[in-house]
Design a protein around this nucleic acid. Structure first.
Lengths: 182, 182
DNA sequence: TGGATATACTCACTCAGTGAGTATATCCAA
DNA sequence: TTGGATATACTCACTGAGTGAGTATATCCA
């Protein structure tokens, strides 16, 4: 799928919930609200929009449930190719932008925590490494921007500051999982 | 204009360049690339898209220049209402999200630096205050999220960390303007 | 018994953003 | 001198994120 999906697509959260078990669009949206409302703000209709194109792409199938007199009601299931796509996303490091870490990486941890704590710790390590490498690149780029390009320098320097604070958060993220012990 | 323009609309940078003086869409895009490529990444066609709806909204007017045999070529001018909208945006604090500060606030400083250094310092103060107030709100909200909502807490705590580092950057931003003295 | 709330989904829309394409003018190097 | 790169200037058709209002039925409970 050499599809140029925009960085930070909401498709994977949706797929993630269906990865756990099949459900209705309605429930899916409720789960989103309950578990990740500080991370994603996806309206109900937007949830249905996403499901629509996932169906079109064959990542999700809908089976109609006919319950006497009630209309529609589709039970949504992640297809095999849907599962593959989701797993690929889950295991690959999130692009190194502050926002992507806050939204996508936390979402990956959310789904990974359903699988194993060890996986979480692994994802955290990998993400921290990716961030360190990316930061190196940004420092190098900063050196190529002439002194008088004040606002380009501002943009890049602020970006670097943000990423530094994101990195240190990621490095300590394992604390969330051992917290219960305290 | 109770228009619900999405937070972080690219319309104001475009208006900002036309605020300085009228030019072609082509030049406008070149200026963007030259001065703010670390801040905004707006493609040429996207620049024209923006100009299109600004024209439709009466914020920009286009006067056709007929130069013997060459086609099209529109000189774009900011209208009075365009100027008013731009100034309103320039003087009002940017919404307190990390990305908005990195993109919109730096853009505001860019245009403000064309007007006066005193204005820059004023905008920086105001923005820092707005950020402090916003952070208070986030801390309060964090206290309302139960301990077991791990991922919602993660999202909010990371957001707070990012905003803290953004705030300290803003507080020191005046350094960019006195730099030449060193 | 009727009004609030929960379940479940649709539609029409705007706005951000991309990629490829069109057309002419100018410069400069073999 | 000519033809190929580069600069000028703009258009079009598209995808994808996101919103707001609307539809329809079922259930609860006061």
């Amino acid at each position: 799928m050499t599809k140029a999906t925009s960085e930070l697509s909401p498709r994977y959260v949706v797929m993630g919930f269906l990865y756990i078990y099949p459900m209705h669009g309605y429930d899916l949206h409720k789960h989103l609200e309950a578990n990740l409302h500080e991370v994603w703000r996806i309206s109900q209709s937007q949830t249905y929009n996403i499901l629509k194109y996932l169906k079109k792409e064959g990542l999700v199938t809908a089976t109609l449930q006919q319950i006497e007199k009630r209309p529609d009601r589709e039970l949504l299931t992640l297809t095999d190719s849907g599962k593959i796509e989701f797993e690929a996303w889950l295991f690959a490091p999130t692009p190194s932008s502050s926002r992507a870490i806050r939204v996508e990486f936390i979402t990956r941890l959310f789904f990974a925590s359903n699988l194993s704590e060890h996986l979480c710790s692994h994802l955290i390590q990998e993400q921290a490494n990716a961030l360190r490498i990316h930061l190196e690149g940004l420092y190098a780029r900063l050196n190529t921007i002439p002194r008088d390009q004040i606002f380009n320098r501002m943009g890049l320097e602020l970006r670097i500051e943000q990423l530094k604070s994101v990195l240190s958060w990621v490095e300590n993220a394992m604390e969330y999982f051992v917290e219960g012990i305290t």
